[in-house]
Design a protein around this nucleic acid. Structure first.
Length: 587
RNA sequence: UGGCCUGUGGUGCAAUUGGCAGCACGUCUGACUCUGGAUCAGAAGGUUCCAGGUUCGAUUCCUGGCAGGCCAGCCA
């Protein structure tokens, strides 16, 4: 038996990447295929509850489920696990579908809702009652909790545990009809109140909720609990591998118990019918990332508390936030591929995500020159009214992206950071008396510095250029240590640039001085808006969503807030900055 | 005096099922360069949680510890 060493990646280029060993889930799938456990089928599902926006942690699960299906010739369903009408909304149903699609996955015609299975689930519940495996309990929520016991003390049986099947059938039917108020009764599985696994202490299967459901409206007033519903949903859809996160590990015995309970008495020739499909639940560790939070509750708090500007705030790890920031879906998929799948609770360094983003954008993003913090440069010996159109390469990694023209004239802007009146060691850029190259332009030498007499701030530089260096090459072969980006002052387009940094200033935002709130770790400088910044005219009519590399600065994306004549750019990620590192070390 | 799961360089994952512990990100050197980008070459970094045991040989198997995660919703 040959172990599978090659796998096909979901990369857009369709290339087969070299062997990466199989993670433990793919190992299980491979083995199941080998033993023909499921008749050659691989059927997975992504089962979100529509009660919030998806985040990059969900992307891990999405890529896992859809990725495995794709890799092994199976299928993956999108299924909304909508069993709690009090938390769920249509808005989330829409956003989730949008996000999964945007990430590049396709559920084809397999869009399902748990709520579409409610009638079947009800019928199975009736069967369990008949088998005396479920009963209607009149205990209130707090009483149920009292009876449950604790982690170290066993629970006590409900006084309603021994009702007859006939009585339970009647009561359950009346629960459905709406004869009882919210919380008055539940349907519970009759398992073992002394079980060491709390989940097995007669878990609630149905609760009464007189609430309008986004999908079924007012048809139901009893709703199935997760444990009862989830395995049945999987069973109905013929799921082979039901992949979920670690916290469901000790729900697995219950997952199995419910399906086994339905199957008891079923089989070939049985009046009850054939056995129902019994999928295998497999649990993996959810994704955590440094410098951010991933819990739905905390994300919701940040949005509702206006700590950020909505679910798609580019600082959020939500899919919509990443999308708005400009992160390409291909980079997210690559990231999910690289982080692996295991059962250990770990936190991935956000730098890996950033690496994946740079890696993709380096190959695909058009290069452009933009000056974020402008400093005026006047080329004293350049003819006043002259304008030259200089050739610039759109992407040195991809010649097919061609070239463009960039206007050059006497008055330019360069980056403030690219000039130092008193340059420190290893600072290669412009300084008084020093010569540097303007990218695709000319060599220039700084001749004098003009300052604001009051503040001492440098307001403009006077330079000279060497006409022989047009295009950036020196015929005499002399070298310069730096190449600066620039824009022509009279041609540049004024834009807004939003610089984003980590949302939190601590690697682990949950780490607080005792009693402290996690929100005290919010980074006060996570958003810096630069107005005006100047960009070369070639991008004047760029459409929202377009991504560029601003040479020597970083990758940027045209924001949704942009209007005609007023472009807004989001910084997706910086370029690696060696000088910043040196400077930091120098203090 | 509960149950289940997990411990491998800084971080995240591997190790052909018992054979000299590898890869990626990060870090540090150097080369090259019209982006201090990209690329290339190289380096540092491990008591594989600990202690016993089995074995010629243990990250892998056994026993016992220790540490961390999850579980007491009519949430998922």
């Amino acid at each position: 038996m040959a172990k599978i060493h090659d796998r096909v990646d979901a990369n857009s280029d369709g290339a087969t990447t070299p062997a990466r060993s199989l993670d433990f889930i793919r190992t299980i799938v491979t083995e199941d295929l080998r033993t023909n456990k499921w008749g050659g089928r691989v059927q997975t599902r992504f089962p979100p509850e529509p009660n919030g926006y998806l985040h990059i942690g969900h992307a891990k699960s999405i890529c896992l489920n859809f990725g495995i299906a794709k890799q092994f010739g199976g299928m993956c369903n999108l299924r909304f696990d909508d069993t709690n009408p009090t938390a769920e909304e249509e808005e989330y149903v829409q956003s989730i579908q949008h996000d999964v699609k945007w990430l590049g996955w396709d559920w084809e015609d397999r869009l399902y809702f748990a709520s579409d299975y409610f009638e079947q689930m009800y019928q199975w519940a009736v069967e369990l009652i008949k088998k005396e495996k479920a009963y209607v309990c009149d205990l209130r929520a707090d009483e149920t909790s009292q009876h449950r016991g604790t982690l170290t003390k066993q629970g006590n049986d409900s006084p309603y545990r021994n009702r007859t099947a006939a009585e339970n059938l009647d009561l359950f039917e009346r629960m459905r009809k709406g004869e009882f108020s919210d919380g008055a009764k539940t349907l519970r599985a009759k398992i073992d109140m002394a079980h060491a696994n709390m989940n097995m202490r007669d878990p609630v299967m149905y609760r009464i909720l007189h609430a309008t459901h986004h999908n079924t409206g007012d048809k139901w007033c009893i709703y199935p609990m997760y444990d009862w519903a989830h395995g049945l949903e999987d069973s109905i859809e013929g799921i082979t591998h039901s992949i979920c996160t670690l916290e469901f590990e000790d729900h697995r015995p219950l997952y199995d118990w419910f399906i086994d309970a339905i199957n008891e008495g079923r089989g070939p020739g049985s009046p009850q019918g054939e056995k129902v499909h019994h999928p295998q639940q497999i649990e993996f560790a959810r994704l955590e990332l440094t410098y951010t939070v991933m819990s739905k509750r905390k994300l919701l708090e940040l949005v509702k508390g206006k700590y950020v500007n909505g679910w798609d705030d580019p600082r959020l790890p939500t899919i919509s936030g990443l999308r708005r920031r400009g992160v390409p879906p291909e980079a997210i998929r690559e990231f999910c591929d690289r982080i692996g799948v295991a059962k250990f609770n770990s936190t991935i360094d956000v730098q890996l995500l950033e690496h994946c983003i740079r890696d993709y954008l380096n190959k695909t993003a058009m290069r452009v020159m933009a000056v974020l913090r402008p400093l005026k440069v006047i080329i004293d010996n350049y003819p006043g009214g002259q304008v030259e159109e200089l050739d610039a390469i759109n992407n040195p990694e991809d010649a097919s992206m061609g070239t463009r023209k960039v206007p050059f004239s006497q008055v330019l802007y360069i980056e403030r950071d690219d000039f130092r009146e008193d340059p420190p060691k290893q600072f290669f850029r412009l300084a008084p008396g020093r010569e540097v190259r303007l990218r695709y332009g000319y060599f220039i030498t700084c001749k004098s510095v003009v300052k604001d007499p009051k503040t001492g701030e440098v307001t403009e530089l006077h330079c000279t250029y060497d006409p022989a260096t047009r295009g950036g090459d020196s015929p005499d072969g002399r070298k310069v240590k730096a190449t600066l980006h620039w824009v022509s002052a009279s041609h540049a387009v004024q834009v807004e640039v939003r610089l984003y940094d980590h949302l939190f200033s601590k690697e682990n935002p949950n780490e607080t001085p005792d009693g402290g709130d996690w929100k005290s770790n919010l980074n006060p400088n996570s958003l810096d808006s630069l107005i005006p910044a100047y960009i070369e005219p070639s991008v004047a009519s760029a459409a929202p969503g377009s991504r560029y590399q601003f040479e020597r600065v970083g990758y940027f994306c045209v924001d949704l807030d942009s209007t005609i004549g007023k472009l807004v750019f989001n910084r997706i990620v910086t370029l690696k900055d060696t000088w910043a590192k040196i400077e930091k070390k120098q203090g």
